[in-house]
């Protein structure tokens, strides 16, 4: 048993280290003095300096963040409503409904992107940030639904019933009891939908208006013609750093709450 445990431990941490090798390379090269992305030729902060004057990178980063945030909010609202509706009221044909809602998840993204682009063209809807958002929601709302539904199915209705017998009406119960109980699943759904939207390239590429880059699209258009500047690495390093600080603070906060 001990041997198996040790092997397991070694395996786990080896994989964790391997996961971080490319990230480490990226961070290291953000400090590279030369333009080479393969050979390290000395330490420099040049990439960081050029990053701060690169308005287009920041613009695209900003676009990525705000569109993703709207996508998350809309997807969560739609997802919660659908998951609650399907699991709680079990309308006739709810299994079919359930399968239908999940179709966007199993359809390959390239197909969704192409069909949406053609549809928008044929109907004559001009592209705007709205079309990007709606394209993401069409995938992310079902994703949120899937995660939340699992939580709804698995839980105890007693709390809700207790609230109702204590005189709360259904809407109050939904807001005051159901939603807080769902929080862990909601957070998980929020995180996954955010990451998906923030990282999406193909769908955004087909639905973006003129002059509107998100970070993945910006990076791709740079990459495709041989000009990935290392300031992108610098930006990624900063993002990782910020994410680290945020998560650290959140964990500290949670610890404090749990000790109280």
């Amino acid at each position: 048993m001990k041997v198996v445990d040790t092997l397991l431990k070694i395996f786990f941490w080896t994989v964790m280290v391997l996961i971080y090798v490319p990230i480490a390379v990226m961070v290291a090269f953000s400090f590279n003095a030369s333009r080479s992305k393969v050979v390290f030729e000395g330490f420099s902060l040049e990439n960081y300096i050029s990053l701060f004057s690169n308005e287009r990178v920041w613009g695209s980063f900003y676009n990525s963040i705000w569109t993703a945030l709207i996508v998350v909010v809309v997807s969560l609202i739609l997802g919660i409503l659908m998951a609650y509706g399907v699991t709680r009221y079990r309308p006739r044909g709810s299994t079919i409904l359930d399968s239908l809602i999940m179709v966007p998840i199993i359809i390959p993204e390239i197909v969704e992107a192409v069909t949406l682009a053609l549809f928008l063209s044929i109907v004559g809807i001009p592209l705007s940030p709205f079309t990007i958002i709606i394209g993401h929601v069409a995938f992310d709302a079902p994703l949120a639904y899937l995660i939340l539904k699992a939580r709804f199915q698995g839980w105890n209705r007693e709390y809700e019933e207790a609230a109702m017998t204590l005189g709360a009406d259904e809407i109050r119960t939904f807001v005051k009891v159901t939603i807080p109980l769902m929080m862990p699943a909601v957070l998980a759904a929020a995180f996954l939908t955010f990451i998906w939207s923030y990282d999406d390239f193909i769908k955004t590429f087909f639905t973006r208006p003129t002059g509107f880059d998100t970070l993945p699209v910006y990076i791709w258009t740079r990459v495709a013609r041989g000009r990935v500047e290392l300031d992108i690495n610098a930006l990624s390093t900063i993002i990782v750093l910020v994410a680290m600080i945020f998560t650290y603070l959140r964990m500290k906060l949670e610890e404090k709450q749990s000790t109280i």
Binding site: M82, G85, L116, I134, A138, A141
Partner: peptide, 21 residues
Amino acid sequence: LFLSPGLITLAVFFFLPFVVS
């Protein structure tokens, strides 16, 4: 009320494009 917002969104921006294709 619970289902329609999500279903309408999916119908218009997912299923309809799919049918067009």
